[in-house]
Design a protein around this nucleic acid. Structure first.
Length: 250
DNA sequence: GAACTCTGGAAAGTTACGTCA
DNA sequence: ATTGACGTAACTTTCCAGAGT
């Protein structure tokens, strides 16, 4: 799974963008390696040994944000070390590190295989064609699941933004109604012409006359301290409003 | 050209198993 | 030692597109 940049502006980044050999690999497959050698396992034990003497691979994994682009310094050493450890971690049943690596590289090129490619890959990896086929099926499923999770998060953020905007608009309506129902304020209001409405977005904007009148009330008209509730984005182009896109929320 | 059958592949769902905390 | 969570390999079912008749 490589970087993705679709219409939603979403992208998935794994590892370090500057370190290509590992950065594009799936963490799922990186974590799968049947390192059954006892001697090497002791090495992993040493590396993951926690204070209480137990192995702590999950906490180690927590230190890696697969969606964050690490700094250059991290890329060169820390990320390298972490990825190297990930690559060697035994995790469940797997086809082996080298095989997974080749399968991943092949998957990056094309997520589906024609029969000829499948046979060639199976021969290269000393696997049955059926195993290669199954691996690609499962890999596509994992990719789709991951993408679904990302899309779901994006939609959730959109929903949150709209909810907040809805709440803000309700408050604004209430304030406007209160303003209209107040006779004193209503009679001393400036003419409606001081409020202008954008013909394209139909948002009310405050003209320079009204804003100056509101900001600097004269001694002869103290009641001119008129509050005009205008949302902070009223004068903003639609495309730059906070609820208009995923990039504006983070 | 339309209707039907066959076949292969993909997706979705499920199961079994190994590892770890 | 046991258990639940998690990841992966492998299987089953369903659907669909393309080829052949």
């Amino acid at each position: 799974m490589g970087d993705r940049d679709d219409g939603l502006g979403l992208s998935l980044r794994l590892g370090c963008a500057h370190y290509q050999p590992y950065s594009k690999l799936s963490l799922l497959s990186l974590a799968s390696h049947p390192m059954q050698n006892l001697q090497q396992k002791n090495t992993w034990n040493d590396m993951f040994q926690s204070s209480d003497g137990h192995l702590n691979t999950r906490s180690f994994l927590k230190g890696i944000d697969v969606n964050r682009a690490p700094t250059t310094a991290e890329c060169e050493e820390e990320a390298m070390m972490k990825m190297a450890v990930l690559l060697a971690m035994p995790q469940g049943r797997s086809l082996g590190f080298q095989r997974s690596l080749v399968l991943e590289e092949t998957f990056k090129e094309h997520s589906t295989l024609n029969p000829k490619q499948k046979l060639a890959l199976a021969k290269q990896l000393n696997l049955r064609p059926r195993q290669v086929e199954v691996w690609f099926q499962n890999r596509r499923a994992r990719t789709k699941l991951k993408q679904t999770e990302v899309d779901c998060e994006y939609l959730k953020r959109c929903c949150d933004n709209l909810t907040e905007e809805n709440r803000r608009l309700h408050k604004e309506v209430q304030e406007l109604r209160a303003l209209k129902l107040s006779p004193q304020l209503y009679t001393h209001m400036n003419p409606p012409t001081t409020l202008t409405m954008c013909p394209s977005c139909e948002r009310v904007a405050v003209s320079s006359l009204s804003t100056s009148a509101a900001a600097t009330p004269t001694s002869s008209s103290p009641n001119h301290q008129r509050h005009v509730p205008v949302s902070p984005w009223a004068a903003m182009p639609i495309s730059t409003r906070p609820f208009n896109g995923p990039e504006s929320t983070s």
